[in-house]
Design a protein around this nucleic acid. Sequence first.
DNA 1: CGGGGAATTCCACAAGTGTGGAGTTAAGGT
DNA 2: ACCTTAACTCCACACTTGTGGAATTCCCCG
Lengths: 206, 206
Amino acid sequence: MAGETTARRRPTGRRAGDSGTRDAILDAALALFAEHGYDGASLRAIAGAAGVDPALVRHFFGDKETLFATAVADRTTIPLQVLSQLGGDPSSAGRALTTAYLRIWEDPATRPVVLALVRSATTSPRAAEMLRDTLMSRAADQPGMTPERLRHIALAAAHLFGVAVARHVLRARPIAELTVEELVEEVAPTIQRYLTGAHLGPAARG
Amino acid sequence: MAGETTARRRPTGRRAGDSGTRDAILDAALALFAEHGYDGASLRAIAGAAGVDPALVRHFFGDKETLFATAVADRTTIPLQVLSQLGGDPSSAGRALTTAYLRIWEDPATRPVVLALVRSATTSPRAAEMLRDTLMSRAADQPGMTPERLRHIALAAAHLFGVAVARHVLRARPIAELTVEELVEEVAPTIQRYLTGAHLGPAARG
DNA sequence: CGGGGAATTCCACAAGTGTGGAGTTAAGGT
DNA sequence: ACCTTAACTCCACACTTGTGGAATTCCCCG
């Protein structure tokens, strides 16, 4: 019996010590959701990437939606990071918001979160809602918000969102090939104009 | 045996006359791809919506990818519609491009095409490529194109893309609730600035 | 040191997927 | 009037998916 060739199955039962398996599953889930979206990432693939039996995923998180919500939304502070940029010095808010927003997509820590949301939002209404709250920012809830200012912020967010998706999902040239600094240089002035309400053209004055 | 109750199967063999079935399949495919994306729309569901056996889809189009390409890309002139806006009067190109771009998403004839592309592009590289060519526009191939102008066009396209996705896919407020005219009013001046290269801020002059 | 509960595995099910083969009926050219 | 070709259906295969039940091993508290 000692001659187990190569067909090695994992031992059943609980592991010794603190196995950190739960976090491994969350990490694998986030990575695969980011790469393939909600539907494209199967529970079996996630479990495999985490080096774990698929049934364990179910044991910890119940169903797939819960896993998604836990892995993607409950572990990030992105909304706060974005919103906090709106409070600072109004004369430099445009550049600050642009930089913060684009950094989220470059930073290896936050990048999988937004990718997972975007890759899932197009097909899952649930994920679309999360994405709305995360990147289109819940600016509406802020104190002293006027409809007009909210509209301006939404336009700025939509612009930044479009640039980020073009760069990181569509990989469209030349946007995907610029450095972040170059990109900020090009976009920040426009964001600034939106935030200050200075974006309306000559036709609006007629 | 004339008492066939309700379990009625479709007759086998060819139909009499011109049944237009091929187009029915293409229409159903486009609609379902638009609603659920490439992976979410199954061949069986498409065949069902077209009132046809799934094997007939295969008979006409071979595999799913071919069906997608045929239903989505090969039946639209969107790239041309968008590109043609770049050639006109430079002083009104911003508004013209904005209007044309946003109309594509509102028009019932072209709307399913862009929705299908967007809902599929996030998971299928193939669809991402089509989307790049369709909406981020193949401006690079145009005669007399400079890298600088290409960059400006790309930024304008990314902005419009972001606004359209926020409106029609994410349904983010307040962008989803404005009328097209209001939206054009807000966005067109910015697009105009990009197209004319007037978007760079004061910092760029230091 | 014994026992409840948590961690972890395997196996199985029912449903849905894209693809393929084989047969049946009508159209169209000769 | 034939006969090739095209339209059209049924059935089946091999596979993947999310979910669930049952068994095993370990941790921790009493």
